[in-house]
Design a binder for these strands. Structure first.
Lengths: 121, 121
DNA sequence: TTAAATGCAAACTCTTTGCAAGGAG
DNA sequence: CTCCTTGCAAAGAGTTTGCATTTAA
């Protein structure tokens, strides 16, 4: 049975207020501003559980660390190889291109574009 | 000036003979069959250099470790969440969907589908 | 009351790095 | 003869886990 702890709420608030694509470390740094005694393990545990439940999304591992996403709906990402930031790309339909693979049970689509963003190019 | 060492050649041979999407560990295990004294650090260094040069590709981090790819041409991947294996998906054109983002300098497209493969579903 | 969640520290895995020795060009 | 590359071992980073304690329900 999942419990509504102060820590859990603070972590979800943090990921929403960042509205970024933060790592566990980013979330931790944000949370300790208001809850200075929280443990980093609690941040990891809650982020993993929230991602599992679909309460938050995961972007993937960039620069060595998993990045989480406050948006739950399917969308794609552009990752700038220079400033290391993300830009959201709205989801579009790929099904027509995947009909030859209709034997596969596709549950999730992860599309990441890499290159240089407008400011960095 | 890049040198043609025995180790470098053995590592490239290994990734081609595996023809999989092996991790550095997988490549190491393959290489020590014929070169038992090679160091794992050498495997990591050569894989990183080869990926940098475009001699090999990278698939991304799955199950905690980077997976490399003997194929250099752009293509996509399906990753089975049960058997943890990859299936190659031929590249298809996404440009039409990305015209609203033509300010971005897109250098690489990484598309990973996740779900269950034919055998696992 | 009681089982789930926390905090802490240690452990774990993958990867990188410093340095002396080896080897390709 | 150079200096790039290797092997080794240690370090590093991100993440997970064991366990006693706390706390939500």
């Amino acid at each position: 049975m999942k419990r509504n702890t102060i820590q859990r709420q603070a972590i979800l608030d943090a990921i929403n207020s960042l509205a970024n694509h933060p790592t566990a470390e980013d979330v931790y740094v944000q949370v300790i501003k208001t809850h200075p005694t929280i443990s980093k393990a609690t941040v990891y545990r809650n982020l993993a559980a929230a991602a599992e439940n679909g309460e938050i999304g995961t972007v993937g591992i960039f620069d060595g660390a998993m990045h989480f996403d406050h948006k739950k709906e399917e969308h794609f990402h552009f990752f700038c190889d220079k400033c290391r930031g993300f830009i959201d790309i709205p989801s579009f339909d790929l099904k027509a291109n995947l009909t030859p693979f209709n034997k596969l049970d596709i549950k999730k689509i992860e599309l990441t574009l890499r290159g240089l963003c407008e400011d960095c190019k």
